[in-house]
């Protein structure tokens, strides 16, 4: 069972590495909608000790594909809405936008249950611990 202490320890390690991360909420029919500053997604990214590449704006916003390629995230976090419908996540990870980023090349997608990641309930600490471990390879 991970504790807050363990999470802090691993996230401190991550902070030193300066890992670039983005969190995608949804990308159906529009540009990807990602977590900006002052969102639960941003909070989650800070919690695992990574750096949100889209911290120049507030709230959940759509960003251009070019911006994602330019910012070149190392890891992409995807809160999945329905754990048994993994194919939906696959349509995101296989999208050509990500193929050219470090995350896409190395298949660095961290997928977890949306409520666990962003619900900020009791499960969040476990989800954050797993994500922090996943990006600390």
């Amino acid at each position: 069972m991970p504790t807050v202490k363990q999470l802090k320890k691993i996230s401190a390690k991550n902070t030193k590495k300066d890992i670039k991360v983005m969190l995608i909420l949804s990308m159906q029919g529009t540009s990807p909608i990602v977590a900006g500053k002052e969102t639960s997604g941003h909070g989650f990214i800070e919690m695992i000790g990574a750096r949100n590449i889209f911290d120049s704006f507030k709230g959940w916003k759509a960003v251009t594909a070019e911006a994602i390629i330019e910012m070149n995230p190392d890891y992409i976090l995807i809160p999945s809405r329905d754990m048994h419908k993994n194919s939906k996540v696959a349509t995101i990870t296989e999208h050509p936008i990500f193929a050219k980023t470090t995350a896409g090349k190395n298949k660095n997608f961290v997928i977890d249950d949306g409520m666990a990641m962003l619900g900020f309930g009791t499960r969040t600490i476990f989800s954050a611990y797993d994500a922090a471990k996943a990006i600390n390879k």
Binding site: L25, S26, M27, Q28, G29, T30, S31, P32, I33, W60, A62, T64, A65, P79, R81, H95, I97, G114
Partner: peptide, 18 residues
């Protein structure tokens, strides 16, 4: 839900992204 709502909102305002 939340994610779908944001998807809907952005979609109804139009985008050539994706």
């Amino acid at each position: 839900d939340d994610a779908e709502l944001r998807g809907l909102t952005f979609w109804t305002m139009g985008s050539f992204g994706g």
